[in-house]
């Protein structure tokens, strides 16, 4: 039997890792919001999304979270009429990434909030461990 408080720390750490990966993908999307192809009719950058999975960690016997994979988003590309662009097809249309800045920012805020909640859980577990150790201290 693993100590539940230290497994709480491990679970919280898995949450922090998953949320920071999510934030990394969000920044990748934001940075590539205007990345088009170079050849006529080429596909631009595709928006990426992380998927989370719930996994039972055998060593601590608890449900940790892990990033299942970084997938490509399936929404259609935006199209713009710009005949001079190197990636324009024969009709003069350029495919732009399917990144929506507003939803990326909303996703970023959500990742932030989840990160904070995980930190809070870790903080409280640590405090509980500290309180237990404090019981051993005599004279106070």
């Amino acid at each position: 039997m693993h100590d539940p408080l230290s497994s709480a720390l491990r679970i919280g750490a898995s949450g922090l890792e998953a949320q920071s990966k999510r934030l990394r993908v969000v920044t990748e999307n934001l940075a590539n919001a205007q990345s088009t192809g170079k050849t006529p009719g080429a596909d631009p950058y595709t928006r990426k999304v992380v998927t989370f999975e719930n996994e039972l960690d055998e060593t601590i016997g608890a449900n940790v979270v892990k990033v299942g994979g970084i997938e490509r988003h399936r929404s259609p590309y935006r199209v713009e009429h710009n005949p001079g662009h190197p990636a324009a097809d024969q009709n003069g249309f350029v495919k732009l990434p399917n990144v929506d800045i507003v939803s990326e920012v909303a996703d970023m805020h959500e990742a932030n909030r989840a990160y904070e909640a995980n930190l809070q859980a870790i903080k409280q577990a640590r405090e509980m461990i500290a309180m237990t150790i404090d019981m051993l201290r005599t004279g106070s």
Partner: peptide, 11 residues
Amino acid sequence: QSTIASNIANA
């Protein structure tokens, strides 16, 4: 506490 941590991690 460890259950709560698990819930939050899987939010």
